[in-house]
């Protein structure tokens, strides 16, 4: 694929990550300073908080969006670094496919988890 296309999306993905991962980091690691989206208090990774975020459609959707965008950004960056090492044509194709497969596998796993957790969180409230 053309780098003109991929690099432009790499750049756009970086800007999306800046917003979404910024929010994620603020929730997870600036909790004492900001304390956002942790309704039950305590640590942001306490189960109650995970459920509370998992219930909202906003977090479930942005988790999947961030997952896909960050995987593309990161793996394209890694591909760029690996291809700068001047691999032969066969190895180059192998690298590209390996990274695509890795990316798709991680995306499927993460999407499944986000969707399932959304169900679990909703169920947890209803039951």
């Amino acid at each position: 694929m053309q780098d003109q296309k991929l690099w432009t999306w790499h750049l756009a993905a970086g800007l999306v990550i800046l917003v979404l991962l910024g929010l994620h980091m603020a929730i997870m690691h600036l909790d004492a300073a900001l304390g956002i989206f942790n309704p039950s208090g305590g640590h942001p990774i306490d189960w109650a908080n995970v459920v509370a975020r998992g219930q909202t459609l906003f977090f479930s959707v942005t988790y999947v969006l961030l997952l896909g965008v960050a995987l593309f950004h990161g793996l394209y960056g890694l591909r760029n670094i690996l291809l700068e090492l001047a691999p032969g044509p066969g190895l180059k194709t192998a690298i590209s496919w390996l990274l695509i497969i890795t990316g798709v596998a991680l995306f499927v796993l993460g999407t499944w988890a986000a969707w399932k957790a959304h169900q679990v969180a909703l169920g947890g409230v209803l039951v």
């Binding site: 053309q2 760029n80 291809l83």
Partner: peptide, 10 residues
């Protein structure tokens, strides 16, 4: 030529 790996992307 520029849109490929020869281009400014690296």
């Amino acid at each position: 030529a520029l849109r490929g790996p020869q281009g400014p992307w690296r």
